[in-house]
Write a protein that binds this DNA or RNA. Structure first.
Lengths: 150, 150
DNA sequence: ATAATTGCAAAGTCTTTGCAGTTTG
DNA sequence: CAAACTGCAAAGACTTTGCAATTAT
């Protein structure tokens, strides 16, 4: 059975964990695998816990929370605030910008390059180094725009 | 005793509440007044409750949460997600953009005009009508930039 | 060996809800 | 007076923590 691209990525991520001084455990393997398989590249801690528990019912939610923290410190994982409270996690190499529709909740992914001009403006004008991906921008998606304006 | 500008604004806001079909009560008067007095134009629901309770110990926190919801529906109040979970409320006419330093927590206010080009780009390129003020952007402020980069 | 990691149970924080009594318009 | 509003107590959702046992290096 040939190694799938996902297998490769899993190995690469786990190698990075070890390289940064973290330990690779069955639990972490499962958590990272679940992150890789997340449909939209991101999940809440809670959802991640549920998914991991399908295959490993003995992995406790608190472990998932702690693991996400640790992986964040190791630089392997990052999170984004989607607003209205939800925090979603994703692997660092899957970084991208999110737009969330305030009306229907749709999440749209946008390449970070779109934000370059803004990054420059804030850097030059306010001495602020913005990291736009850390937060999803809110607004109205195409269909809700139409619905709202009539 | 002359009427202070704050008194005037309080009246104006309360008039708006009534105009939109809401009722004006002692409780609401206190809550709106506390919003007007918020140092940085914004507060969390919790902090607001604490401040209101200094003068009116009998006003329950749940009422503050409910009132903020109602005032939001009436269009008098809006909220912004500061990231890491904090939601801050402010009067609609005090709308502005927030930048939050991920390192020291400083909150910087920026005029919304700075975001116009981005708004256009997302409108044209993604058919997305972004409302940047709804969410604070994260990054590093001037001093922390310096500290981080060495 | 030994320092990191984990399960479990318990506590914490912030927010929401149901209800019965009050108050506003 | 009817509808809106409020206090209170209880429940809820999500996350964090202390500890003893387990496991990777």
């Amino acid at each position: 059975m040939p190694r799938s691209p996902t297998d490769d990525r899993l190995k690469r991520v786990l190698a990075l964990v070890r390289e940064k001084g973290g330990r690779v455990t069955t639990t972490r393997r499962a958590i990272v695998a679940a992150l890789l398989e997340a449909p939209d590249h991101h999940v809440t801690a809670q959802t991640l816990a549920e998914r991991v528990q399908r295959a490993h019912p003995d992995i406790h939610a608190s472990t998932v929370y702690r693991t996400l923290d640790t992986l964040t410190e190791l630089g392997v994982v990052e999170h984004t605030h989607l607003g209205h409270g939800a925090t979603v996690y994703h692997l660092t190499d899957q970084r991208h910008q999110h737009l969330v529709c305030e009306r229907c909740g749709a999440v749209i992914e946008v390449p970070l390059t779109v934000f370059e001009p803004l990054v420059q403006t804030l850097r030059d004008g306010y001495d602020f180094e913005v990291r736009p991906e850390h937060v999803a921008l809110a607004g109205h998606c195409a269909s809700c725009r139409a619905a709202v304006s009539g």
